[in-house]
Design a protein around this nucleic acid. Sequence first.
DNA 1: GCACTGTGTA
Length: 656
Amino acid sequence: MSLGNSFGLCFFHSLLSQLQTKAVKSSLLVFRRLLQSNLKPSDLTFSLLIKASASSSFASNSLKPKLEANQIHTHLFKSGIIQLAYIRTGLLNLYVNLGCVKNARFLLDEMPGRDVVAWNALISGYSKNGYDFLAFNLFIEMVREGFRPQATTLVGLVPSCGRLELAFQGKSIHGIGVKTGLDRDSKVKNALTSMYAKCGELEGAEILFEEMVEKSVVSWNTMIGAYGQNGLFVEAMVLFKKMRAQAVEANYVTVMSLLSANADHETIHCFAIKSGIVNNASVVTSLVCAYAKGGDSESAELLHKSLSHDNLVSLTALISSYAETGNMDKVVVCFTRSRQLDMELDAVAMVSILHGVKNPAYIAIGLAFHGYGIKTGLCIHCLVTNGLISMYSRFNDIEAVLSLFLEMQEKPLISWNSIISGCVQAGRAGDALELFFQMMMYGYVPDAITIASMLSGCSQMGYLQYGKKLHCFILRNNIEMEDFISTALIDMYIKCGSIELAERVFRGIKEPCLATWNSMITGYGISGFENKALNGYTELRKRGLKPDKITFLGVLAACIHGGNVDKGRRYFQIMTEEFVWGALLDGCCIHQEVKLGEYLAKKLYLLDHTNGGLYVSMSNLYASEGMWDDVARVRQIMKDTGGDGSSGASLIELTS
DNA sequence: GCACTGTGTA
């Protein structure tokens, strides 16, 4: 009998250890089978059971693994095996992997003779789950109780300092490492390198990296990532080449780090194929994200389909790339697919979708997603509420915006920013100003984004005095003056009638971006400085910037204002010869010039009647003016000609 | 060691 028992157990043990690597079916199922066979599980059985559950519990959002962990916990409790330290730590680790840090904490607190391994498990558990302060406090508690930290302790704790950008605490840990000699451990060195990089102290990272005698692939990856995170993309690539030169084999993290360091995704894709890393799901997901970000939704979708298991991150990237271009039909298709797979969207995906609801024609879809958000509880996230606020403010529904805002339980700065910019965009600068004062009364300090919105509000109302106060605020608080803020500031001074002050701001900028040039050119135009506007255009071209629709409208407005028809005609010719007419048509959407738009659309049709984008632009233009009958008419034409304006397939049909 | 995300200018 006892021999039978040990044979039976051996059989189930080997089954459980196979599950660890395959991680397919529920390990608990195997365990139940074992109990049904009247076998008595030993501590080894439980150890294997816990390990098998832990390896299959990752990347799952569902409740099932958590319930399974609870069941294992119960069995352990009933059999008394939970008293064994190594079993208890295993269970603690399982809870940590499932994100149940409270249960893990309970296990540590009630542990009779807890050892340093248990402390390590919970410290790194807190850190992994983003409870950075708890991780730090636990470390202090551990040291106070007289435990000596190990290399594993530091490896678990140091990432928390990087995430919180607690450089000082990170350095203290580094100090402890030096004192105890633990810093000689290569894992500790890698963790510290990453911490310095995340805190923006690249020099520290470089020193540690150079110091390492034996650089593993993890070390190289860490340093490549360090450069990438700090915007030094060329350095990241150079280091990758060095790594290759030293014959260190790249792995999936290398590929992902390079992708996030803005490396050309097609090149990296080739490299991944050649080195056989392309089968890795994380790499494919990152590639989907890279293609999606680059606007190549088609390639992104192809890659996404090649994944054996659909995952939310990849799907979200795909959804957001469709949403970015306002292609809500595709977004809905992706959403439907996620429902069929029984995948629940998260707040990040929801936000991407809401971002895509720009065209008034899709307002019903926006409302439907609002409903979905309420039903699923996603609306509790302030991320989602901010998305809803922006969506409703795009449609000037300020009442909806205000009620959403009032219902928010916590109102972080970003939500104030959402609602203030929402009011400004809806042309209600007065309300924006009132909210701005309220925000200040609550003790919030405005950031660059608040200021940019408020400046835009001042332009609307012509509040020069208040605009000047905001300018002072920017100077006093050393708020970054480039691009957004300076453009808004210039625009404010122009709209408030002070071209001189606008010029002064403009001259203070070293490298004005296109938007800044545009606002200055437009400003000169409407203030009657036609020549200065045209000089601005020449200067901008000299600097190698590519003018866009707003530049052209600014230049044309300057010519019209100066009554200089000939010059206007000449610039108009340059635009039509060098750039597409379509840019001008989209420009009409911004200024809601329906008549001019129709004229341009006819011209464009003669040039290229297969251009589906033409109909889309016209439909958008009509929609922006609320001319719904005309929108319907254009859509009917699109249907009749078989072009839906976006799919490549229909274009092939038309030309064949 | 890694991927998806909101608020801002013309």
